[in-house]
Amino acid sequence: MSVLRILRATLCSALLLSPLWPAMAATRAPVVPGPPPGYEARADVATFIKDLVQRHPELDEEVVATTLSEARYQAQVAKFIMPAASPAAKNWKVYRSRFLDTLRVREGVNFWRDNEAWLRQAEERWGVPARVIVAIIGVETIYGRQTGGFRAVDALATLAFDFPRGRSDRSGFFRDELEALFALASRDRINPLSLKGSYAGALGMPQFMPSTWLKFAIDFDGDGRTDLQRSTPDVIGSVANYLAGHGWVKGMATHYDVLPPTTDADREALLVPDILPSFTAAELAQRGALLSPAGQQHAGKLALVELRNGVEAPSFVAGTDNFWVITRYNWSAYYAMAVIDLSESLAALKTVADNR
């Protein structure tokens, strides 16, 4: 053995026998993180629980506390709720292409044909066209394929008690939704820890927030429970009930073609209310907007809706009250137009499929 090897072996032996070795080894040993803490030991959570059970005497305080002790902070939830660091310019054509893809269109036609009887019943009861119901479910989750993988109690607790800094604080909204989660779990006999959804706490095939589930979800198939995870009839009926509850008008168009005013002042004046119908057809005309013949005959209020196309010229439609109702599902004109365009594509393709 060379002299160098002998010196190295002697040094290693000395270190192993030294009383300093355990401390040195501990310093260098990898740190294995334990499980993230629950929410049971915090004063703000304890206050939330007490207020919750006072408002909902059907809930057991110990059960709620135990459930929240199982909740875990989710860093990904906090990340996803933040706005993009460099948001892209709004582009209707790009947005539309995301939701009128081959998979959604194909599966939408299949979903419609498989559930035609339920869709017909929903349309008769609430006046909401089958094509709109099918399109919303397609846009939201591709007919149950993408319902989200976060435990709802984790996502909502994270946003209720640890809402990230750097954007407008919405922790109050998410505390209300966490409360609604416990209320619906109790009412519908569901283990709240079993519910999974989006990073924002939206649940099931239609992506209802818990408060929306409580208010609008229904047992449409009559099996004694409301199931938005697996019961397609319940999902169909609940979406129709939601739209009707927000004012859907049977037989009314969602929008009309329109050319905007040529002057900046008139165009900006009509865009101020955004997507809220605020002008009669005559008032739009007075400002220089040119409506389609059908739009000119519309009896209710209309909104001039702008859809930007990046660096290209924007698109415009005149939205009706039913356009506004679709935006109650997601406060976005782009979302509403994606639903509408998908619904029209599905209706046309289903007609072709039925006539084969």
Rank of each mutant, 00 (worst) to 15 (best):
S194I: 09
R42S: 12
S278V: 06
T263C: 13
G34M: 07
I137H: 06
R308E: 15
P57V: 08
R170H: 13
Q297P: 00
A185G: 12
T226I: 15
D266F: 08
G319Y: 04
Y334M: 13
L16I: 01
L214T: 02
N309C: 15
Q229S: 10
A253L: 00
R113C: 00
L184H: 00
L100V: 15
G224D: 04
E40P: 01
T263F: 09
T263L: 14
S345A: 15
V105T: 14
A26K: 10
S198I: 01
T47C: 05
A253H: 00
R187T: 08
S69M: 05
S194A: 15
E107A: 12
A130G: 13
L159S: 11
R8Q: 00
A200M: 06
I275Y: 02
G319R: 10
A303P: 05
F173Q: 05
D321Q: 15
D114S: 14
F48A: 07
S13Y: 04
E283F: 04
S13H: 03
M337V: 05
D274F: 11
E140H: 09
I133G: 12
S345Y: 01
L119E: 05
W213V: 03
G237R: 10
A84H: 09
A244L: 04
R187A: 13
A84L: 12
L342G: 11
A285M: 11
G172K: 13
